[in-house]
Amino acid sequence: MLRLKNIFKTYYPGEPNQQKALAGINLDLKQGDFLTIIGSNGAGKSTLLNIIAGDIEPDSGSVIFHGKDITRRPAHRRAGFIGRVFQDPLAGTAAEMSVAENLALAKVRGQKRRLNRAIKKESRTEFAGILKTLGLGLENRLDESVGLLSGGQRQALTLLMAVLGSPQILLLDEYIAALDPSTAEQIISLTGKIVSQKGLTVFMVTHDLRQALKTGTRTIMMDRGEIILDIEAEKRKTLTVADLLERFARLRGRELTDDRILLQAR
Protein backbone atom coordinates (compact mmCIF):
# COMPACT_ATOMS: atom_id res chain seq x y z
CA MET A 1 0.00 0.00 0.00
CA LEU A 2 2.78 2.41 0.92
CA ARG A 3 6.30 1.89 -0.35
CA LEU A 4 9.39 3.94 0.30
CA LYS A 5 12.10 3.29 -2.23
CA ASN A 6 15.69 4.23 -1.49
CA ILE A 7 14.95 7.54 0.19
CA PHE A 8 17.81 9.97 0.81
CA LYS A 9 17.58 13.34 2.51
CA THR A 10 20.32 15.74 3.55
CA TYR A 11 19.60 19.13 5.08
CA TYR A 12 21.78 22.04 3.91
CA PRO A 13 23.79 19.94 1.43
CA GLY A 14 27.27 21.26 0.74
CA GLU A 15 27.13 23.79 3.54
CA PRO A 16 29.19 23.59 6.73
CA ASN A 17 26.08 22.70 8.75
CA GLN A 18 25.13 19.85 6.41
CA GLN A 19 23.00 17.20 8.15
CA LYS A 20 22.47 13.74 6.72
CA ALA A 21 18.98 12.80 7.87
CA LEU A 22 18.02 9.76 5.77
CA ALA A 23 20.36 7.46 3.87
CA GLY A 24 18.67 4.81 1.79
CA ILE A 25 15.37 4.03 3.46
CA ASN A 26 13.35 1.15 2.03
CA LEU A 27 10.02 0.15 3.52
CA ASP A 28 6.97 -1.68 2.29
CA LEU A 29 3.74 -1.58 4.28
CA LYS A 30 0.46 -3.34 3.79
CA GLN A 31 -2.97 -2.06 4.72
CA GLY A 32 -3.41 -2.46 8.49
CA ASP A 33 0.29 -2.67 9.33
CA PHE A 34 1.17 -0.90 12.55
CA LEU A 35 4.81 0.11 12.52
CA THR A 36 6.57 1.36 15.63
CA ILE A 37 9.78 3.32 15.05
CA ILE A 38 12.56 3.71 17.58
CA GLY A 39 15.98 5.28 17.46
CA SER A 40 18.02 7.89 19.23
CA ASN A 41 17.56 11.61 18.86
CA GLY A 42 18.53 12.74 15.37
CA ALA A 43 18.20 9.27 13.83
CA GLY A 44 15.85 10.62 11.15
CA LYS A 45 12.48 9.41 12.46
CA SER A 46 10.69 12.74 12.13
CA THR A 47 12.24 13.38 8.74
CA LEU A 48 10.87 10.02 7.58
CA LEU A 49 7.35 10.93 8.71
CA ASN A 50 7.62 14.38 7.15
CA ILE A 51 8.56 12.83 3.84
CA ILE A 52 5.57 10.51 3.98
CA ALA A 53 3.30 13.45 4.82
CA GLY A 54 4.78 15.60 2.07
CA ASP A 55 6.11 18.36 4.32
CA ILE A 56 9.53 17.82 2.78
CA GLU A 57 10.68 16.21 -0.45
CA PRO A 58 13.46 13.62 -0.47
CA ASP A 59 16.66 14.37 -2.41
CA SER A 60 16.23 11.05 -4.18
CA GLY A 61 14.09 7.97 -3.94
CA SER A 62 10.34 7.70 -4.20
CA VAL A 63 7.16 7.41 -2.18
CA ILE A 64 4.61 5.08 -3.74
CA PHE A 65 1.03 4.99 -2.52
CA HIS A 66 -1.21 2.27 -3.98
CA GLY A 67 1.12 2.03 -6.96
CA LYS A 68 1.14 5.78 -7.61
CA ASP A 69 4.27 7.86 -7.29
CA ILE A 70 3.44 10.70 -4.88
CA THR A 71 7.00 11.79 -4.11
CA ARG A 72 6.49 15.38 -5.31
CA ARG A 73 2.89 15.80 -4.25
CA PRO A 74 2.52 18.64 -1.69
CA ALA A 75 1.33 17.92 1.84
CA HIS A 76 -2.14 19.41 1.47
CA ARG A 77 -2.86 17.09 -1.44
CA ARG A 78 -1.95 14.02 0.58
CA ALA A 79 -4.05 14.96 3.57
CA GLY A 80 -7.06 13.10 2.20
CA PHE A 81 -5.39 9.79 3.00
CA ILE A 82 -2.98 10.80 5.77
CA GLY A 83 -3.91 11.79 9.32
CA ARG A 84 -1.28 13.22 11.64
CA VAL A 85 -0.66 13.85 15.29
CA PHE A 86 2.37 15.99 16.10
CA GLN A 87 4.61 15.80 19.13
CA ASP A 88 3.60 19.27 20.29
CA PRO A 89 0.10 18.92 21.78
CA LEU A 90 -0.71 22.45 20.61
CA ALA A 91 0.29 21.87 16.99
CA GLY A 92 -2.66 19.81 15.82
CA THR A 93 -5.55 22.12 16.66
CA ALA A 94 -6.57 25.73 16.07
CA ALA A 95 -6.57 27.32 19.52
CA GLU A 96 -8.88 30.23 18.77
CA MET A 97 -11.54 28.05 17.23
CA SER A 98 -14.08 25.93 19.06
CA VAL A 99 -13.92 22.17 19.62
CA ALA A 100 -16.75 21.66 17.13
CA GLU A 101 -15.10 23.92 14.54
CA ASN A 102 -11.85 21.99 14.83
CA LEU A 103 -13.68 18.72 14.28
CA ALA A 104 -15.57 20.24 11.35
CA LEU A 105 -12.26 21.22 9.76
CA ALA A 106 -11.09 17.61 9.98
CA LYS A 107 -14.37 16.09 8.84
CA VAL A 108 -13.88 17.34 5.28
CA ARG A 109 -10.23 16.29 5.24
CA GLY A 110 -8.76 16.50 1.78
CA GLN A 111 -12.07 17.49 0.21
CA LYS A 112 -12.92 20.68 -1.58
CA ARG A 113 -14.23 23.16 0.96
CA ARG A 114 -17.44 24.84 -0.05
CA LEU A 115 -19.66 27.70 1.00
CA ASN A 116 -21.83 25.42 3.09
CA ARG A 117 -22.47 25.98 6.75
CA ALA A 118 -19.63 24.00 8.30
CA ILE A 119 -21.48 22.84 11.42
CA LYS A 120 -25.01 21.58 11.03
CA LYS A 121 -27.20 20.12 13.72
CA GLU A 122 -26.36 16.56 12.69
CA SER A 123 -22.66 17.23 12.86
CA ARG A 124 -22.99 18.47 16.43
CA THR A 125 -24.65 15.18 17.42
CA GLU A 126 -21.99 13.27 15.55
CA PHE A 127 -19.17 15.24 17.18
CA ALA A 128 -20.65 14.83 20.65
CA GLY A 129 -20.85 11.09 19.99
CA ILE A 130 -17.20 10.68 19.06
CA LEU A 131 -16.02 13.01 21.84
CA LYS A 132 -17.85 10.84 24.34
CA THR A 133 -15.53 7.94 23.49
CA LEU A 134 -12.70 9.96 25.04
CA GLY A 135 -14.41 10.04 28.42
CA LEU A 136 -13.04 13.54 29.04
CA GLY A 137 -16.35 15.35 29.06
CA LEU A 138 -15.47 17.27 25.90
CA GLU A 139 -18.89 16.44 24.45
CA ASN A 140 -20.27 19.15 26.73
CA ARG A 141 -17.70 21.71 25.60
CA LEU A 142 -18.35 21.75 21.85
CA ASP A 143 -18.48 25.54 21.68
CA GLU A 144 -15.50 26.28 23.88
CA SER A 145 -12.24 27.52 22.39
CA VAL A 146 -9.71 24.75 22.07
CA GLY A 147 -7.19 27.09 23.69
CA LEU A 148 -9.00 26.52 26.99
CA LEU A 149 -8.27 22.77 26.96
CA SER A 150 -5.28 21.12 28.61
CA GLY A 151 -2.42 19.67 26.55
CA GLY A 152 -3.72 16.14 27.08
CA GLN A 153 -7.24 17.08 26.06
CA ARG A 154 -5.93 18.84 22.97
CA GLN A 155 -3.84 15.85 21.99
CA ALA A 156 -6.84 13.55 22.44
CA LEU A 157 -8.87 15.89 20.24
CA THR A 158 -6.07 15.94 17.66
CA LEU A 159 -6.11 12.15 17.57
CA LEU A 160 -9.86 12.16 16.91
CA MET A 161 -9.34 14.77 14.19
CA ALA A 162 -6.49 12.79 12.66
CA VAL A 163 -8.79 9.82 12.01
CA LEU A 164 -11.85 11.85 10.95
CA GLY A 165 -12.65 12.03 7.26
CA SER A 166 -11.39 8.47 6.73
CA PRO A 167 -7.65 8.69 6.10
CA GLN A 168 -5.84 5.40 5.42
CA ILE A 169 -2.52 6.23 7.03
CA LEU A 170 -1.93 7.59 10.53
CA LEU A 171 1.36 9.28 11.43
CA LEU A 172 2.13 9.59 15.13
CA ASP A 173 5.39 11.36 15.99
CA GLU A 174 6.14 10.98 19.72
CA TYR A 175 2.61 12.15 20.18
CA ILE A 176 2.37 11.27 23.87
CA ALA A 177 5.86 12.35 24.89
CA ALA A 178 4.66 15.66 26.30
CA LEU A 179 1.77 14.19 28.29
CA ASP A 180 1.58 12.95 31.86
CA PRO A 181 1.76 9.13 32.17
CA SER A 182 -1.90 8.46 32.88
CA THR A 183 -3.18 10.65 30.03
CA ALA A 184 -0.55 9.07 27.78
CA GLU A 185 -1.77 5.59 28.74
CA GLN A 186 -5.35 6.59 28.01
CA ILE A 187 -4.49 8.00 24.59
CA ILE A 188 -2.44 4.92 23.68
CA SER A 189 -5.33 2.60 24.42
CA LEU A 190 -7.72 4.84 22.51
CA THR A 191 -5.32 4.78 19.56
CA GLY A 192 -5.29 0.97 19.61
CA LYS A 193 -9.07 0.85 19.59
CA ILE A 194 -9.50 3.33 16.73
CA VAL A 195 -6.74 1.84 14.62
CA SER A 196 -8.09 -1.71 14.75
CA GLN A 197 -11.64 -0.50 14.23
CA LYS A 198 -10.71 1.47 11.10
CA GLY A 199 -7.95 -0.82 9.81
CA LEU A 200 -5.48 2.05 9.52
CA THR A 201 -1.85 1.75 8.51
CA VAL A 202 0.15 3.38 11.30
CA PHE A 203 3.62 4.86 11.73
CA MET A 204 4.28 5.48 15.40
CA VAL A 205 7.53 7.05 16.55
CA THR A 206 8.30 6.50 20.22
CA HIS A 207 11.32 6.59 22.47
CA ASP A 208 9.77 4.06 24.82
CA LEU A 209 11.32 0.74 23.71
CA ARG A 210 8.96 -1.40 25.77
CA GLN A 211 5.99 0.45 24.32
CA ALA A 212 7.38 -0.03 20.84
CA LEU A 213 7.62 -3.78 21.27
CA LYS A 214 4.19 -4.29 22.77
CA THR A 215 2.29 -1.96 20.42
CA GLY A 216 1.58 -2.58 16.77
CA THR A 217 2.69 -5.32 14.40
CA ARG A 218 6.25 -4.45 13.44
CA THR A 219 9.14 -2.48 14.91
CA ILE A 220 12.05 -0.79 13.16
CA MET A 221 15.06 0.79 14.77
CA MET A 222 16.76 3.70 13.03
CA ASP A 223 20.23 5.13 13.47
CA ARG A 224 21.91 7.90 11.51
CA GLY A 225 19.33 7.83 8.76
CA GLU A 226 19.28 4.07 8.25
CA ILE A 227 16.98 1.27 9.31
CA ILE A 228 19.25 -1.02 11.31
CA LEU A 229 16.70 -3.43 12.73
CA ASP A 230 13.38 -4.61 11.35
CA ILE A 231 11.46 -6.97 13.57
CA GLU A 232 8.21 -8.60 12.51
CA ALA A 233 5.25 -9.67 14.59
CA GLU A 234 6.22 -13.01 16.10
CA LYS A 235 9.84 -12.23 16.85
CA ARG A 236 8.93 -9.14 18.83
CA LYS A 237 7.19 -11.19 21.49
CA THR A 238 10.35 -12.86 22.70
CA LEU A 239 12.48 -9.74 22.45
CA THR A 240 13.30 -7.68 25.54
CA VAL A 241 14.53 -4.15 25.85
CA ALA A 242 17.92 -5.49 26.94
CA ASP A 243 18.08 -7.57 23.74
CA LEU A 244 17.38 -4.46 21.69
CA LEU A 245 20.14 -2.47 23.34
CA GLU A 246 22.57 -5.36 22.95
CA ARG A 247 21.75 -5.82 19.28
CA PHE A 248 22.19 -2.11 18.71
CA ALA A 249 25.66 -2.24 20.25
CA ARG A 250 26.61 -5.30 18.19
CA LEU A 251 25.36 -3.79 14.90
CA ARG A 252 26.75 -0.31 15.34
CA GLY A 253 29.88 -1.01 17.35
CA ARG A 254 28.86 1.52 20.00
CA GLU A 255 26.39 1.80 22.85
CA LEU A 256 23.01 3.43 22.42
CA THR A 257 23.35 6.63 24.38
CA ASP A 258 20.16 8.57 24.42
CA ASP A 259 19.07 9.72 27.85
CA ARG A 260 15.41 9.72 27.06
CA ILE A 261 15.42 6.18 25.72
CA LEU A 262 17.58 4.80 28.51
CA LEU A 263 15.48 6.51 31.13
CA GLN A 264 12.38 4.81 29.78
CA ALA A 265 14.17 1.48 29.32
CA ARG A 266 15.20 1.02 32.95
Partner: peptide, 15 residues
Protein backbone atom coordinates in the same frame (compact mmCIF):
# COMPACT_ATOMS: atom_id res chain seq x y z
CA UNK B 1 -9.68 31.15 9.99
CA UNK B 2 -7.61 28.06 10.72
CA UNK B 3 -4.97 29.29 8.27
CA UNK B 4 -4.49 32.40 10.39
CA UNK B 5 -4.50 30.32 13.55
CA UNK B 6 -2.38 27.28 12.70
CA UNK B 7 -1.16 26.92 9.11
CA UNK B 8 0.63 23.63 9.76
CA UNK B 9 -2.51 22.03 11.08
CA UNK B 10 -4.72 23.18 8.24
CA UNK B 11 -2.16 21.91 5.72
CA UNK B 12 -2.32 18.51 7.38
CA UNK B 13 -6.08 18.60 6.83
CA UNK B 14 -5.81 19.25 3.11
CA UNK B 15 -5.89 23.02 2.67
Amino acid sequence: RATGNNPRMITSLGV
